[in-house]
Design a protein around this nucleic acid. Structure first.
Length: 367
DNA sequence: ATGTTC
């Protein structure tokens, strides 16, 4: 059973027949193609329905900027840090107790945020959010290199089995929604660069930098709590818009593919894959999948019919004091990351380099 | 996604 995708030469779908994509997401793709100025759309194997359009796609326009494609979480993405530690020396219980404290401290002071490059007015309103995970699918996760898949690429990158890593998924917190609200636009019409698009981009770019800084503060704090040396390695946004040669490239839940290696996480009970994208893959708009993608909407995961808690498929410890969030983010809410990676590989978008195993996941310490 | 959210 396969979906029938819109017959439109501008659309490329990088998913195999065995990757289930909801009909609602396909209908949203049709609407995306009707937005003003759309030249090309690349849909990834983790495509799923979103608020104002599908999550898991890249959209190139002739210069019209569509803020509601990027949505509220401007700059959201993944940061991967190397940790100076080895799996065989790790005490998992101790790591759990350490990461439980990630929610204890507040964010930065405005002065610290300004020193880190945040504009004074933004710092005044949002510094306290720097170093906070947020909700939804965001997390901080201690991982270990589980399996080398591409030995040469791993040797190049210094990736060795049993090495500890820190993966952070977060965004611009309340700054993103503020920026979106500050630039009103008609759905589907968007903002031409000279008619509000450039002004949106300036605020948007600040939110992208803010989100990256937030991930760095989170990683630094997590490494400190774990008592391990931490070194920044990769930072890859998957929710943003870039303008080049007068064209606007939007990514909505699609990872940037021209920054080197990319961590592609599964659910919070699955492996993460480190992949090497081909930034020139035809039709992919310099993008790849950003994760497993939701299989079930949040609402359907509540209620008695769901059958309650299941064991974590890969045995990582998940710190999440919010039971409702834990249900919405349960592993069974997500697609199979192995299939997503297989689809990326089969379509020439990315090659797997290593599999990373989650050990301890921090979602939220707040009850 | 959201100093969210009935």
């Amino acid at each position: 059973m396969t979906n029938s995708y819109p017959a439109d030469a501008r659309l490329r779908v990088f998913a195999s027949a065995s990757s289930w994509i909801e009909g609602a997401a396909v209908r949203q793709l049709e609407q995306t193609l009707q937005r003003r100025g759309v030249l090309a759309v690349a849909a990834m194997p983790d495509l799923h329905p979103g608020h104002k359009g599908p999550v898991g796609c890249a959209v190139l326009t002739d210069g019209v900027v569509h803020p509601d494609i990027v949505g509220t979480d401007i700059g959201c993405g993944m940061t991967l840090w190397r940790l100076g530690g080895l799996l065989r020396r790790l005490k998992v219980d101790k790591a759990v107790r350490a990461l439980e404290r990630l929610g204890d401290r507040g964010g930065l002071d405005p002065a610290e945020a300004v020193a880190a490059g945040v504009a004074a007015d933004v710092a005044a309103r949002h510094a306290a959010a720097l170093g906070t995970v947020g909700g939804g699918n965001h997390f901080v996760e201690l991982q270990a290199v589980d399996r080398i898949i591409d030995a040469a690429a791993c040797a190049d990158a210094g990736v060795e089995p049993g090495a500890l890593l820190l993966l952070v998924h977060s965004g611009s917190r309340a700054l993103g929604p503020e920026v979106l609200a500050r630039h009103p636009h008609v759905h589907g019409e968007g903002l031409p660069l000279e008619e509000g698009g450039a002004a949106y981009l300036a605020d948007h770019d600040a939110a992208v930098r803010f989100a990256r800084l937030n991930r760095a503060v989170l990683a630094e704090r997590a490494a400190e709590l774990l008592g391990l040396d931490g070194a920044p390695w990769l930072d890859v946004p998957h929710n943003h818009v870039t303008v080049e040669d007068g064209r606007a490239l939007h990514r909505k839940g699609a990872a940037q593919a021209d920054l080197g290696l990319v961590p592609v996480p599964g659910s919070r009970g699955a492996l993460t894959y480190l992949v090497r994208p081909d930034p020139d893959a035809p039709g992919a708009l310099r993008s790849i999948a950003h994760g497993a993608g939701r299989k079930r909407d949040r609402a359907s995961l509540h209620g008695k019919r769901d059958g309650g808690e299941r064991p974590n498929p890969v045995g990582n410890r998940v710190i999440c004091a919010d039971a409702r969030l834990a249900r919405e983010e349960a592993p069974e809410a997500y697609k199979d990351i192995g299939q997503v990676i297989a689809d990326l590989d089969a379509h020439g978008l990315a090659r797997p380099v290593a599999a990373l195993r989650p050990l301890v996941t921090f979602k939220t310490g707040r009850a």
